[in-house]
Design a binder for these strands. Structure first.
Lengths: 194, 194
DNA sequence: ACCTGAACACCGTTCAAGT
DNA sequence: ACCTGAACACCGTTCAAGT
């Protein structure tokens, strides 16, 4: 984790990890089956920092969980590169379990239930992925280059040039919150309607 | 692209790509600066297959675009592993431009505009990422193992075991559509409200 | 302007051998 | 039960040299 936080996912190497741990690289294969296992373990490990809400009204609890989920992903931006693998570790499963329980408790039923759980998960994953991408990959130069490129081609991308998101370096949090509330409003409406 | 479609992102190698093209691996570096460039080009290339809607009411057009966006990502599941990089190719930019234009045309204004564009993009990216993850990484055995694991620990994950998504292998399309409509309803409401 | 070969500095992983 | 060294089959990339 220290290595990942310090240098990112690309630079995590079995050899470098072993060096960090003071052993030979081949020793690691006694404790772990493959490098992918290391990454799966690291990815699940960060979610231990996401508290499972208790004694809250469902919408407050879900908002809390999803918000903390996002904050944790952003705190470890290397995680974005690992989101394209199944998340089946105990920490992730426990938090998914809470999400399902909260929705069921709110009265959400199929087919809305699956759509709600997937929608919320996919939204937070997509949001964190995109933001982390920019945080990691966009030193000021890259971002400026991208913006200039778009400004130069304002005839080709008029709407992007006029309203595009690359000018606003912030607003991530607010946009996330709005989108989350649209989803939650929709989910809540299915309960009222039945 | 043929190589990626046939064997996935892990197996794309400068050496293997060169072999496919009938040259030496080092020759590629005359045409391309780095392997990342190859991946960026491949990722942007698939979006040429996403038609830009014309002459449609905004919500129908946006629904169409986002749906085709998702279908294209799923048709090339290797793309999921590449979503953690900035998408600044011409095909992606043109389609983002349409999205902004459609929302502006619908009367969506800031701060809803950025939230709407981000929310829709993040939702489709997250949805495709998660589904492609399962399509690629889940041969029947893996998925069965995951489900069994959850069933065995039904005391630890009661809600997941009772309502969990791993039992339903389908329902992806329907869940996606529901989530998308929740977002669109929310966006539409901001126009009505102002 | 484009292609080649040799070379560098790495990788993940296996496996026999040690303690 | 755990660690080591040597080795295998690869990587991305550079660079002088060719045509």
């Amino acid at each position: 984790m220290a290595l990942l936080d310090a240098e990112g996912a690309d630079r995590l190497t079995m050899r470098r990890l072993a060096e960090r741990l003071g052993t030979g690289s081949t020793t690691l294969y006694w404790h772990v089956k493959t490098k992918d296992d290391v990454l799966d373990l690291a990815l699940d490990a960060i979610f231990a920092a996401v508290p499972i809400p208790e004694d809250q009204e469902w919408r407050a609890g879900v908002t809390r969980l999803i918000g903390d989920w996002r904050a944790t992903l952003l705190r470890h931006p290397w995680s974005a590169a690992l989101l394209g693998r199944p998340m089946l570790g105990p920490n992730v499963l426990a938090r998914s379990d809470f999400l399902y329980a909260a929705l069921v408790g709110a009265g959400v039923t199929e087919p809305h239930l699956t759509a709600a759980a997937f929608g919320l998960s996919n939204f937070v994953i997509g949001s964190a992925l995109m933001q982390a991408t920019w945080l990691v990959n966009a030193d000021a130069e890259t971002r400026d280059a991208a913006r200039d490129h778009m400004a130069q081609q304002s005839d080709r991308y008029p709407a992007l040039a006029a309203h595009g998101p690359l000018t606003a370096t912030d607003g991530w949090d607010e946009s996330f919150e709005r989108g989350l509330n649209w989803l939650l409003d929709g989910i809540e409406a299915t309960v009222a309607t039945g």
